[in-house]
C-alpha cells in the first residue's frame, strides 16, 4: 500500500519517529533504526558535538534518515529560535522540532512561547514541527504560523503513561489540516497502535524504546505496532457498540411482505 506521509517535501514511509536522548549507548541508535524502520530521528542540538565525532549523537543517525534537531533546553521562544538557527548552521538540515519547556517539574511544553518560535522559524524557511499540549485553538494558530505538523503530547515526557490526552488529540486529528504526530508519553506498542488507529499521522517514541531491556527488539515492536495501527485506520475500523446487535431486527416486520 502506497501511503506516504508528506512533510516538508519529504515522503516518509515509516510513521514511527525516534527520539535519541535516553539510550545507554549512541551505538544502539543505528540498530534501533534498522529494526524499527524509523526514517525520522530527532536529536537535541545540545547533544550535537561536532568536535568529537565518536561521541557525537548525530554521527549515529543513518544518512538516509531525516535528522530532525530539537530545541531541548529552550526556555522561551528566543532561545528556541537561536538553537534552531545554530542547528541549521551546524549542518543539521532545515527540519526542527520546536520544544520550549519552562517547567522542569512536569516538563510540559509552553504553548505560547512555542507558537512564537514556530512563527519566526517557519518564516525563515524551517520545516517546523512544534511539540505542544493538545489545545485546539493553539493548534489552529500553529497552522496559521506555518507549522509543517503539530506534535501533541500523549502524556508528560518520559512518563510511559500512554495516551492520556486521547480526547484532545482526537479533536486535533479531526480539525487540524496538518499531520498530527503524537509525541511523548507513549509507553507501549499497543498505545502507539491506538494513536495510529485514531488517525494520528505518526508517533514519536524515545523512553519506551531506549529504556527497554532490549531496545532493538522494542524498536521492532513499535515499528510493527505503528504500521498495524496505520493499516487498521485506513481499513475502516468497525463501529464500537455497547450492546450485541440483535439478529432479529425489531422493525424488520414493517418492511416485510408477510
Amino acid at each position: 500500500m502506497h501511503d506516504p506521509l508528506l512533510i516538508g517535501g519529504r515522503e516518509i514511509k515509516n510513521r514511527l519517529f525516534l527520539g535519541t536522548g535516553k539510550f545507554s549507548s549512541n551505538r544502539l541508535i543505528p540498530k534501533v533504526v534498522e529494526a524499527s524502520g524509523a526514517q525520522v530521528v530527532t536529536v537535541a542540538l545540545r547533544r550535537v558535538d561536532l568536535d568529537f565525532e565518536e561521541e557525537n549523537v548525530a554521527t549515529y543517525v543513518p544518512g538516509d534518515c531525516v535528522l530532525m534537531p530539537n530545541t531541548s533546553g529552550a526556555r522561551n521562544a528566543r532561545e528556541a529560535v537561536r538553537i534552531a538557527r545554530l542547528a541549521r548552521a551546524a549542518g543539521c538540515g532545515n527540519w526542527v522540532k520546536v520544544e520550549v519547556i519552562s517547567d522542569n517539574r512536569y516538563l510540559l511544553p509552553d504553548n505560547y512561547e512555542t507558537l512564537k518560535a514556530t512563527e519566526i522559524l517557519a518564516a525563515e524557511g524551517f520545516v517546523v514541527l512544534p511539540y505542544m499540549s493538545p489545545d485546539l485553538m493553539v493548534a489552529k494558530a500553529m497552522v496559521e504560523a506555518g507549522a509543517a505538523a503539530v506534535m501533541p503530547l500523549g502524556s508528560p515526557i518520559g512518563s510511559n503513561r500512554g495516551l492520556r490526552t486521547k480526547e484532545l488529540v482526537r479533536i486535533l486529528i479531526e480539525e487540524i489540516p496538518l499531520p498530527v504526530i503524537v509525541d511523548a508519553g507513549i509507553g507501549r506498542p499497543s498505545e502507539a497502535a491506538e494513536a495510529m488507529e485514531m488517525g494520528a499521522a505518526a508517533v514519536l517514541v524515545n523512553t519506551a524504546i531506549a529504556t527497554a531491556a532490549d531496545p532493538v527488539a522494542m524498536g521492532r515492536a513499535f515499528g510493527m505496532a505503528v504500521a498495524a495501527g496505520r493499516t487498521a485506520h485506513l481499513s475502516g475500523l468497525g463501529e464500537v457498540r455497547l450492546c450485541a446487535e440483535a439478529s432479529s431486527p425489531l422493525t424488520g416486520f414493517l418492511r416485510s411482505d408477510e
Binding site: 547533544r47 568529537f52 533546553g73 545554530l86
Partner: peptide
C-alpha cells in the same frame, strides 16, 4: 551500560 555525555548544553 551507561552513555557518558560529554556535551549536554549548547551556549546560545
Amino acid at each position: 551500560g551507561y552513555q557518558p555525555l560529554y556535551k549536554d548544553w549548547q551556549y546560545i
